[in-house]
Design a protein around this nucleic acid. Structure first.
Length: 430
RNA sequence: GUGGGUGUAGCUCAGUGGUAGAGCCCCGGAUUGUGGCUCCGGUGGUCGUGGGUUCGAUCCCCAUCAUCCACCCCA
């Protein structure tokens, strides 16, 4: 009788051993980078009260309307698996008093959940790395956030493959006023609007500017420009931002149609995009959200942040062949043993080598098998050195050392000679 | 939610209306304690699932599920 197989939930993937070194490589860069800029890690629960996301992301956004994993807890309270990280971080920061008369530079990473049709670079459980900075309202901190991401691209070899797009949404008031003007303008051109545009007219009119429908292009060209309706402060903020980026040597493209999908943004918004991933081209996006803290019940505090999609970036590295070659080599030394007494000895030798060389990646063979089969496993492990503990070695209290990848002669050593040789050979192991 | 492609061995894929094959992987041997190359042998599949047509379906038809890509939207 064959039982039906239980499969992973649609759009939720296992990270298999073959892929994990690449993820660790990426995460390693993130950790050190954040620390180099003085950002502190924050971890928040995956589940939150549903209202948190409704109040922050916006009731009429796609995310809230149809993409959230929402269900009732056993006590009847509505819970939601976080579709993004900012709302939770703001909630936690307010709740713990982190925003009381102080600035904070925070970062986070973890899984996010959105009920969407999966496709390349888009999954129902996906991972983001993000940063949120509170208590600073100048363009200098916006630039810092961008510089941080630019440095990451440089470290990963991605600089030439990504483009920075910039826009300013203005103050919340200016944005609201512009929104009304847009609705007015589009309403006067109802005959040209397609289905999508009509649907969005009163929910997210700014999005209509992004439409690719050919018949609408002329009309969109003539539409009032967001950048022409900025308030003076926002204009100055944006001009300074651009000038700081210029002096830092960071190229960018001003995209007047760049509108983020979440309601809480104001002033600076930016996206890093690539053309190498098909239709999901955004690998990192962020912006300023000066009103959100207050909106979620805190004292008004300016804030800026960004989030990047880990799956997309890992995929990009893979696609572009930017994965370091030695990443998949997971073992330095493979220790084989033949016969019960030697196996017992090998286990002890392994532990003693790990005591002496904490950084050494040593795999001890288990499960017996012929000389040939163990040698084969040593080869497949990727180890540069194989250690052999057989009858002869056991009798002489020695270990044979064989170089698997170089034409160096095999040696027979006692344990202290062995430890010394390995220490020289793997300087980082000590 | 909409559209299209694909589901055959662990993986990558051939194939035919008469119940299946290759390469890789894995195991063993040629080689008593020396891997990679070569050669030989072996394990492994209710051909996604359910129904229909048929004497007979892995193949044709329908449904369903999964997966991929695109739209929408987004990291």
């Amino acid at each position: 009788m064959i039982l039906s197989k239980i499969q992973a939930i649609r759009g939720m993937n296992d990270l298999l051993p073959e892929q994990s070194p690449l993820w660790q490589y990426f995460e390693g860069h993130i950790r050190s980078l954040m620390s180099r800029y003085g950002y502190q890690e924050i971890r928040t629960p995956i589940l939150e009260q549903t209202n948190l996301f409704k109040r922050s992301i916006g009731e009429v956004t796609d995310i809230v309307e149809k993409e959230m994993y929402t269900f009732d807890d056993r006590n009847g309270e509505s819970l939601t698996m976080r579709p993004e990280g900012t709302a939770s971080v703001v909630r936690a920061a307010i709740e713990s008093g982190l925003l009381h008369n102080q600035t904070q530079r925070l970062w986070y990473t973890g899984p996010m959940f959105r009920y969407e049709r999966p496709q390349k670079g888009r999954y129902r459980q996906f991972h983001q790395v993000g940063a949120e900075i509170f208590g600073l309202d100048g363009p200098d901190i916006d630039v810092e956030a961008i510089l941080l991401t630019a440095r990451l691209w440089k470290q990963l070899g991605l600089t030439e493959h990504v483009t920075l797009e910039l826009n300013s949404l203005g103050s919340n008031e200016a944005r609201a006023a512009y929104r009304e003007r847009l609705i007015e303008y589009f309403s006067a051109h109802m005959d040209v609007l397609d289905e999508d545009a009509k649907r969005r007219l009163h929910t997210n009119p700014l999005r209509i500017l992004d439409s690719k429908t050919p018949e609408m292009q002329n009309m969109i060209e003539q539409a009032p420009q967001l950048l022409d309706h900025l308030d003076d402060d926002s204009r100055t903020h944006f001009e300074t931002l651009k000038s700081l980026l210029d002096s830092a040597g960071i190229p960018y493209v001003v995209n007047p149609r760049l509108v983020r999908g979440l309601d809480y943004y104001n002033r600076t918004v930016f996206e890093w995009t690539t053309t190498a991933l098909g239709s999901q081209g955004t690998v990192c996006a962020g912006g300023r959200y000066d009103g959100l803290v207050e909106q979620l019940g805190g004292k008004a505090v300016p804030a800026v942040g960004f989030a990047m999609g880990v799956e997309r970036l890992v995929l990009l590295l893979d696609t572009l062949g930017l994965v370091p070659g030695d990443l998949h080599q997971q073992v330095d030394v493979y220790l084989m043993a033949f016969g019960e007494a030697a196996e017992r000895q090998a286990m002890l030798l392994g532990e003693s080598l790990r005591d002496a060389l904490p950084g050494l990646r040593l795999q001890v063979h288990c499960g017996g098998g012929s000389f040939k089969s163990q040698m084969k496993k040593a080869d497949r492990s990727g180890a540069n050195i194989a250690l052999i503990l057989g009858e002869d070695e056991l009798r002489d209290q020695k270990v044979s050392l064989k170089y698997m990848r170089e034409s160096l002669e095999q040696q027979t050593l006692n344990e202290s000679e062995l430890a010394q040789l390995l220490a020289e050979r793997f300087p980082n192991a000590r």
